[in-house]
């Protein structure tokens, strides 16, 4: 349906049509645009939350560039992003296997089962995982004891790494031992098959017709060759999209770190990520101006990611 064009003169008589957008505009003006502009302005000030502010120019940004904790947090974030690349593998594998099923009914039910964990509030699964990591009661340590993985880790540590991280006489404290915090964050959510990413891959695979498979089978392609020659090329767009979404997510999410490790990012601030540092400065230290400037830096990084995404990744749309 093409929109009816209303000329300026007619619009004066039909001004009430504008009333349809006014509520939405007021809302986004007040709660989206105003805070954004306010953040930009306040990032140039020393602002402790009161009405008194002192203009600092670019000092907040200079401080941010030199801030060792912010640098460390970007390092942690980079490690988590790189790990996320490998964490995509189970989702791709699962999507390919589900796609190859001949039965549509099963495909549907597996999708339903994938959504089930999403129905549980995110915080609940987060806290269940926190409970899994508990040194004394957690089932990860329990499973490691049962499967003798702990013996292996201790042996490796004693003979090779000499870090003293794993000891026979103490339970592994996943979230309070500084050296284990990042590995725990990476392991969190194993086997990492979120419904959204699997669905994104499945949407990419949907374009492959059965005749392609039949042709490949007649040519004697092995299941692995089918994956590298048919499926992987077709979902490369989705993989790249997932990578960008993941990097944007890594830049702006800090709920996980906050809930698992607290506002200080755990022992030795090992689990500190940039978003959490912003939150920490604002709400724990009261340095609202500095927090705004960290927010602005993150803002521009995410904007850059979005730009790359729209310019180079979504070429086919």
């Amino acid at each position: 349906m093409p929109a009816t064009i209303i000329s300026t003169r007619k619009a004066l008589r039909q001004w009430h049509l504008y009333l349809f957008v006014v509520p939405s505009l007021l809302l986004i003006g007040t709660f989206c645009y105003y805070p954004a502009i306010s953040a930009i302005i306040h990032s140039f000030f020393d602002w402790q939350g009161s009405d008194q502010m002192q203009f600092l120019g670019l000092d907040n940004f200079k401080r941010a560039l030199a801030d060792p904790i912010l640098r460390q947090s970007f390092g942690t974030m980079c490690i988590l992003v790189v790990a996320n690349f490998f964490k995509m593998v189970p989702a791709i594998l699962l999507a390919v296997v589900i796609h190859r099923l001949t039965s549509d009914k099963w495909q549907y039910w597996y999708r339903v089962l994938l959504i089930v964990p999403m129905v549980v509030p995110g915080l609940v699964s987060l806290f269940i995982w926190k409970f899994f990591f508990d040194p004394n009661l957690g089932i990860i340590n329990n499973a490691f004891d049962l499967l003798h993985i702990k013996h292996m880790l201790v042996w490796l540590d004693v003979n090779w790494f000499h870090s003293g991280t794993f000891r026979m006489d103490a339970p592994i404290s996943w979230l309070s031992e500084p050296r284990l915090i990042i590995p725990s964050l990476i392991f969190w959510g194993f086997p990492w098959v979120g419904a959204v990413s699997v669905f994104i891959f499945l949407a990419g695979l949907q374009g492959i017709g059965t005749e392609v498979y039949e042709a490949a089978e007649l040519d004697g392609a092995s299941p692995f060759q089918k994956f590298t020659h048919i499926e992987l090329p077709l979902i490369m767009t989705q993989v790249r999209l997932n990578v960008i979404l993941m990097m944007i997510g890594a830049l702006q999410d800090y709920g996980l770190q906050f809930m698992l490790l607290g506002g200080n990012g755990g022992a030795g601030m090992k689990g500190m990520v940039p978003g959490l540092w912003m939150f920490n400065r604002a709400f724990l230290a009261g340095e609202f101006g500095y927090a705004c400037s960290i927010g602005i830096i993150l803002f521009f990084l995410i904007l850059l990611m979005t730009y790359i995404n729209n310019k180079y990744i979504r070429v086919d749309k």
């Binding site: 957008v21 805070p35 954004a36 953040a39 604002a282 927090a291």
Partner: peptide, 29 residues
């Protein structure tokens, strides 16, 4: 969807810009 009034495009881009702008810096203000 139904009308193309004067300023329609401007108003629409006010919406669209927000699709791209991340809200991370907003939380403090």
């Amino acid at each position: 969807a139904r009308y193309k009034m004067p300023l329609s495009n401007v108003l629409w881009s006010i919406f669209l810009v927000l699709m791209l702008l991340p809200a991370i810096a907003n939380i403090v203000p």
